[in-house]
Design a protein around this nucleic acid. Sequence first.
DNA 1: TTATCTATTGACAACTTACACATAGTGTGC
DNA 2: GCACACTATGTGTAAGTTGTCAATAGATAA
Lengths: 112, 112
Amino acid sequence: MRFLEPTLLLLLHQSSGHGYTLIDGLASYGLEEVDTSAVYRALRGMEEKGWVVSSWDEKRTQGPPRRVYRLTAAGDEMLRWWTQDLEETRGMIDDILGAYREHMAEGEGEHH
Amino acid sequence: MRFLEPTLLLLLHQSSGHGYTLIDGLASYGLEEVDTSAVYRALRGMEEKGWVVSSWDEKRTQGPPRRVYRLTAAGDEMLRWWTQDLEETRGMIDDILGAYREHMAEGEGEHH
DNA sequence: TTATCTATTGACAACTTACACATAGTGTGC
DNA sequence: GCACACTATGTGTAAGTTGTCAATAGATAA
């Protein structure tokens, strides 16, 4: 969920789409091994929270009807909130990695 | 757990310590709101996995006996693994944030 | 003896994740 | 017609994880 929700919001901000294509989109952000059911469940959850709305696709293609999701204003706001959150998370990672490297550099040459 | 385990390993790599002081150490990496029980639970789990070993502190100070943890060779290896994992996570965040900014820049000036 | 600080642990509900499976429409080869 | 593969969206559930709250307990100071 940590990256699933923000990435879905980002993809939907770029253009509306249905679950099956969103799953492809997720893969391009490194989320290749996400279970399909997790994606559909996440989308449902996001609709309950009001971040997205869905409707059945008019034009029928190969396969059963597709539920098309599009971002709401609240979802757009959420996406902005998520970017801030991700920046904070990145800052934490940088702190940890920085401290690790610094500590490694300090101990350089030491052998126990 | 995502940041708790690697940060604890890092702190213990710097110097052995008991839970209560480690909790202070976590705060300096932004993990201020971690529940104490979560920390002790994580330490127990890490001991089960063989990343750390614990022993009761000889010298008694104010309060009940303290369980002192120190890193094992396996824990040291794990810490290195975690840094790689954190770098990957960082990469994912960069991808998402990069795409968001790029998309925002593209839509510049557009009003719907 | 009451309160406060240090220090560790237990119990349990809430939530998440992983995996398997159910459903269903369309197109293709036989 | 039938089997099969592909698209597409879901449900059920067991297992594992997290978050919250409280219990325990020693030392010290008022």
